[in-house]
Amino acid sequence: MKEEFVIRPALPEDRPAMERICAHTWESGDYIQEVWDEWLAAENGPLLVVELDTVGVVSLNKVTRHPEGQFWLEGMRVDPDYRGRGIARRCLDWNLAYAREQGGRVVRLSTGDYNTTVHRMVARVGMERVTEGTLRVGPALPGGRRPAILGPEDSDAVARFWRGSPVLAAMGGLYSRDWSWRELSAAALAAMLERGEVVAERAPDGNLAAVATIHHHAGDEEMWVGIADGEPAAVQSLALAIRAGAADAGAGEARAMLPRVPWLREAFLAAGYEPDDWDDELWVYELRLEQDEAGEGERGH
């Protein structure tokens, strides 16, 4: 007999089921418990669960809408007892259909380099791997030299810098933010310049020798580097200065999700950014919906 399941918005009373499912994610634990309430209240996309017949909730995932028609999929979890039944694939189809209905232009997700099951699943719906990232962490550096913060008056120079960036090309035109990846568009750069989230190391002639994007949420222990490029020595100096900026912001550490660019990883290592306890690589996949003519995903049961 065919199993029937329903995909629906999550409710506060689904927390016990979520905790049961997430207890099996990694030996070190899961982050979903920490963001569950935030995701429930979020207005930027649904938090979903899957109910299977009379069993109850057996899966969950979050869809997040980013600016400029970008959608990010995260937090896909399936109860170990119900894996291999096509639940994750049905959720992925639902998510893609939702993004299309909402006028989405592109859908992305990340998964571990070791997760071959997900690699095969996303390839079947046409998603392609566009970049990789590995986490490096540097402790905050109180009293150090802080980075130069750029503003809207620097927008032309910053735009020229990123247009010729090999690192941006290696990252598929993306930058990382809060464990997700987004396009480094003109609008995104303008917003970050307004917020003081673009920092630089200048050459003696005043030109930009290295540039990075950063972000820090008040009260968080981490300041994140979204992307960095430039002359290797200048990038190393900038990465060190960002550790000082993290200390000034009240963060305990600076974090960078670095692409597979050897000299960049070496520059950050020289600036005191070491591998974290989690030392795998995240692979980022995307599907551009304007090029996806099949539109096979259907929302529903």
Rank of each mutant, 00 (worst) to 15 (best):
H301C: 08
A249P: 13
W94I: 01
I242L: 08
D30C: 13
G69Q: 13
A186K: 13
A209Q: 01
G297H: 07
P275R: 12
C91G: 08
W26T: 01
A241C: 03
E3A: 15
G144K: 02
E38V: 10
G112W: 08
P12D: 09
N115T: 10
G56N: 09
A188N: 10
P152F: 03
P152L: 14
G230H: 09
I227F: 01
E27R: 09
V57R: 01
R265Q: 15
Q102W: 12
H215Y: 10
G172N: 03
I21A: 05
I21E: 02
E194N: 03
A270P: 00
E286P: 07
E298S: 10
L47A: 13
D113H: 09
L48S: 02
R265T: 11
M18E: 01
L141Q: 10
W39T: 03
E68F: 08
I32T: 06
A148W: 09
V107S: 02
W179V: 11
P12G: 12
V198K: 02
L238G: 01
V63K: 05
Y82L: 01
P46D: 05
V106N: 00
L48Q: 08
A246G: 07
F161C: 07
L96Y: 01
W36L: 05
D79V: 03
A244Y: 03
N44T: 15
R90S: 14
I149S: 10
W162Y: 11
D81V: 05
D277R: 12
E43Y: 02
D154Y: 10
Q291I: 00
Q102T: 05
D14P: 09
I87G: 05
P147S: 10
W263A: 04
R90C: 07
E34H: 14
L240M: 06
R65E: 15
E43I: 05
M18L: 15
A187M: 04
E153K: 14
I21M: 04
E51V: 14
V55E: 11
H217G: 13
E281I: 14
S185Q: 06
Q70V: 09
A233L: 13
E274K: 00
V78S: 01
L258S: 09
Y175S: 00
R202Y: 08
L184F: 15
D14G: 02
E221A: 13
E183N: 12
L208R: 03
P9M: 10
S165E: 11
R77F: 04
D280M: 06
G196C: 13
G84D: 05
D156A: 15
A88C: 12
W94M: 02
G29K: 07
W162E: 07
A42Q: 09
E194Q: 11
